[in-house]
Design a protein around this nucleic acid. Sequence first.
DNA 1: GAGTGTTAAATTTTCGAATATACTTGTTTT
DNA 2: AAAACAAGTATATTCGAAAATTTAACACTC
Lengths: 232, 232
Amino acid sequence: MAKSSHSLAAQVYARLRQEIMGGTFAPAEPLRLAQLKDRYGVGFSPLREALTRLTAEGLVAAEPMRGFCVAPLSLEDLRDTMDTRIFVETAALKRSILHGDDAWEARIVATLHAFKLQLARRDESDPESRETLENRHRDFHFALVSASGSARMQAIIENLYLGSARYRVLRPGDRSAYLARNLEEEHTAIAEASLARDTDQACALLAEHYRRTAESLELAHRRQLGAATAAQ
Amino acid sequence: MAKSSHSLAAQVYARLRQEIMGGTFAPAEPLRLAQLKDRYGVGFSPLREALTRLTAEGLVAAEPMRGFCVAPLSLEDLRDTMDTRIFVETAALKRSILHGDDAWEARIVATLHAFKLQLARRDESDPESRETLENRHRDFHFALVSASGSARMQAIIENLYLGSARYRVLRPGDRSAYLARNLEEEHTAIAEASLARDTDQACALLAEHYRRTAESLELAHRRQLGAATAAQ
DNA sequence: GAGTGTTAAATTTTCGAATATACTTGTTTT
DNA sequence: AAAACAAGTATATTCGAAAATTTAACACTC
């Protein structure tokens, strides 16, 4: 029982993705097949398939005949990603406000509530608590733009989210800037403006929210770069 | 000699992609591994890798334990794709006009010239001639947005182009609507407005260009649907 | 000592057999 | 006849050995 109906490749993909996002494998770190084969207890085929998928999604980089490595991070990519997110998500939010029905509103209310609950009980020292918070945060933002009516935009938004989430602050000590923000207020304001169908206000608040996030991520990324350099 | 340095998987990927785009495999047609294995003379591994990549890019659909098939087309997807293209590419053009340097201008002039040459000598009865025209058309449009300064946007644009190019009219007889347009004039006008740094005009012309394209593709797609239904 | 070729080791990539899953066809049961 | 079941067939998926390629180590020349 509890036997997953997914193929092995899909399972490996999920685990690998989680471990890259979680920092088990550092950016630019080589991903040796033999090593991963042992770690996951699978053959080459599903491994390769998972890595190929992750490569197409931008989480992994592949060099012909030289294997795979975790895709590197850079300040440039972070800025690009966050700028593009703001651009695409504000447009998607605008359309969602225009077309959103009751289910859309309900989904926003629901995900915001769940996010607030976790925000209140969060424990920064517990990785699992941090992950739950991150997931609920993501769910809320996806809910906001879920009525855009464009599957293509949805896919783009998900991919960009994935790309930016890699810059999350991994070390608890570096999360002070993030935590100093009044996240409950920021998200509530975005939700209220959206539900009130105040397009301009909602988009402005969302953009500002992401600009703050970008700033916070940039700061943390710089600090991490510094730490990495110092550690050499 | 002439031995490709690419891996087998990359070669299979390129061929498969070309054959899907070219209509060798019809939309929604199952892609049987044994059949492809024979056709390309390779083993399962590179085949699977190529199919996985194409799946991530949206050209192929995969069902767990049931293999792969060519991703289906639909009027809904066509509209979504073209709308999103207009949205993203006009923004990218705007930024390119803002940041574009001499190399950007030169690239526009060069690709437009090459496109015009092929337009003049085009032979609708020759598939190769049609493909060359399509490639040069693509090159011009990529050149327009090549100075956006955003690698993420670039990637999105390329993926959306790929998605929409599948709706190209494949049968020569159905290209009348496409050919009736004054393509030389349309593209020249876009290039001129861009080089003159007239952002609003350039974006308006580009959007209009894509709206016409969308219309033409919709027409052809409907016709093809009708033909497919009638043929049953 | 810097450069150059040569062998050995490590690693990726590919192949085809082996396995697991889905589909088909025919049979039985109700 | 419809539904449920049961082989048998077709197909996708996975494995581990084999082949191809890159990297490392080492000796040799200039």
